[in-house]
Every structure is written in structure tokens, then in C-alpha cells.
């Protein structure tokens, strides 16, 4: 918190740093929302969906703004986004295969 506060006062006038601070504030807000959601009573699927969406937004914000990928050469996106998608897809299938696997009666 302290870090965020001092920045806002120190670095005024520099537009780029202002953007960084605004992004950080949003990240903080979303994190707060995440924690709140985790305490609210609601059906698990809805809760999981909400939490996943929020964390994807945070992920994208850090990658896009702090890591500058949004403004950088598109060539840089390819290897990273390939890695993210590949990891998501492959491991989902593996976990799915385990679910199928345990549902199969032993031969």
C-alpha cells in the first residue's frame, strides 16, 4: 500500500508512470474483489468462473502494461502466447483424462 501511495505523489506529471500507477490501482481493486468473492456464498461453478475471469484480467494487465507486450513488436507475442495457450490446453486435457480414467470401471 505504502509503495502505491508514495508513487502517486512523487511521480506526478510523468504520463507513463501515471499509467503504471493506475494499472496497479486496478490490480489492487481486482485483488480485493477476488478475495471478497472467495468469501461470498455462491454456487461453486459461478465462483470458479468469476475468479478465473478476474485472474485472467490481472494476468493480461501485467503482461500488457507492465511487460509492455501490448505496445511491443507483435513477434514477441507469439512465443509467449503459444506457451500460455499450449500450457492451458495440454494440462486441461491431462486433468480431464484423469477424470475419465477414474470413471472407467477396472478391466
Amino acid at each position: 500500500m505504502a509503495a502505491g501511495g508514495t508513487t502517486a505523489t512523487k511521480e506526478h506529471g510523468h504520463p507513463k508512470e501515471k499509467v503504471y500507477v493506475v494499472v496497479a490501482l486496478w490490480l489492487a481493486l481486482i485483488t480485493g474483489a477476488e478475495i471478497t468473492i472467495s468469501y461470498i456464498k455462491m454456487p461453486d461453478p459461478a465462483k470458479i468462473a468469476a475468479l478465473l475471469i478476474l485472474s485472467i484480467i490481472k494476468f493480461a494487465a501485467v503482461v500488457g502494461y507492465f511487460m509492455h507486450l501490448k505496445f511491443d513488436n507483435p513477434v514477441l507475442r507469439k512465443p509467449f502466447i503459444t506457451g500460455v495457450i499450449l500450457a492451458g490446453a495440454l494440462y486441461t486435457i491431462v486433468l480431464l483424462a484423469f477424470t475419465l480414467h477414474s470413471n472407467t470401471p477396472p478391466r
Binding site: 499450449l86 475419465l100 480414467h101 470413471n103 472407467t104 477396472p106
Partner: peptide, 18 residues
């Protein structure tokens, strides 16, 4: 090549769907 790995595991008992 990333989407075919389980053919090494057919005899493991992954079930008919997989």
C-alpha cells in the same frame, strides 16, 4: 505432435473416450 501423446498409453486403461 503435442496432441497425440496418449497413443503411447493405450494399454494403460485411459478408457474408450480418451
Amino acid at each position: 505432435g503435442f496432441g497425440v501423446w496418449a497413443h503411447h498409453m493405450f494399454a494403460t486403461g485411459l478408457g474408450p473416450v480418451a
